[in-house]
C-alpha cells in the first residue's frame, strides 16, 4: 500500500456498524479503561472526603505545590494528546512517514511531563516534605505516583505504536492496537486534568 492510500475499512480497527458508529480500539479495552477511571474516581472522592475534615490544613499543604509546574504538565499532556490523535488519523490515511513522527512528538511531551514531575518531587523533598507529614501529601504522592506509572506505560505503548506504524498496517487488529494505545494515552491525559484541578486548584 503506497503512502497516502486509504487503509482497508477506512482504517478503522472494527468496521462501523449499520448506524455508522465505531468503537475506538478493542471493545474489551473499554472495560480496562472504565475500571481505571472508576478506581481513580474513588481516589478523587476519598481526597475530598478527607479534605472535609481539615480544609485549612489541606489548603496550607497545597501552597507547597508549584502551580506553574502543574500547569506546564497539563499543557504537555494536552499537546501530546493532539499529536497522538493526529497520529491515529495519519495511520488511517496510511501516511507511514508522518504517523511515527507524530507518535514520537507525543513521546517527547511525555518525557517532558516525567521530567517536570521529577523536578517537582525533588523540590518538595528538598523542602523537607515527607509523605507522612500530612494527609494532603499522602494523597498527592499516592495519586501522582500512580498516574506517573500510567504515563510510563503509555510512553512505552506510544514507542511501540511509533515503531509499528513505520510500515503500512493491513490487518484490522493492527489498527485496533494503534487505536487502543491512543485511547489509553488519552485516558492518562484526562486523569491528569482532574488531578491538576483537585490537587492544585481547588480552594
Amino acid at each position: 500500500m503506497s503512502e497516502g492510500e486509504k487503509a482497508p475499512s477506512g482504517g478503522l480497527a472494527s468496521g462501523p456498524d449499520e448506524s455508522g458508529a465505531h468503537v475506538p480500539g478493542e471493545p474489551g479495552l473499554w472495560i480496562l479503561l472504565f475500571g481505571e477511571m472508576s478506581f481513580f474516581a474513588a481516589l478523587f472522592a476519598s481526597f475530598l472526603y478527607y479534605r472535609g475534615f481539615d480544609p485549612s490544613g489541606f489548603a496550607e499543604a497545597q501552597k507547597q505545590l508549584s502551580q506553574t509546574v502543574g500547569l506546564i504538565n497539563t499543557l504537555l499532556l494536552l499537546t501530546s494528546s493532539l499529536f497522538v490523535a493526529h497520529g491515529v488519523r495519519a495511520v488511517r490515511a496510511a501516511q507511514t512517514s508522518l504517523a511515527p513522527r507524530l507518535f514520537v512528538l507525543g513521546i517527547v511531551c511525555a518525557i517532558g511531563f516525567i521530567a517536570c514531575k521529577s523536578f517537582e518531587y525533588y523540590e518538595l523533598f528538598d523542602h523537607g516534605i515527607a509523605i507522612s507529614d500530612h494527609t494532603f501529601y499522602s494523597f498527592y504522592f499516592g495519586l501522582t505516583v500512580l498516574h506517573l506509572g500510567h504515563v510510563v506505560i503509555g510512553t512505552i505503548l506510544l514507542s511501540l505504536m511509533a515503531s509499528a506504524t513505520r510500515r503500512p498496517l493491513k490487518k484490522p487488529t493492527h489498527f485496533a492496537m494503534v487505536e487502543s494505545g491512543a485511547c489509553f494515552w488519552h485516558m492518562v491525559d484526562l486523569l491528569w486534568i482532574v488531578i491538576f484541578a483537585l490537587l492544585y486548584l481547588v480552594e
Binding site: 462501523p16 465505531h22 475506538p24 490523535a85 487505536e179 488519552h186 484526562l190 486534568i193 482532574v194 491538576f196
Partner: peptide, 18 residues
C-alpha cells in the same frame, strides 16, 4: 476540568462516533 475531560473523551478518543 470535567468539561475538558468531556472534550478529550468525545473528540480525542472519538467516542462521539461510538
Amino acid at each position: 476540568a470535567f468539561a475538558k475531560v468531556a472534550v478529550v473523551i468525545f473528540t480525542f478518543m472519538e467516542v462521539r462516533g461510538a
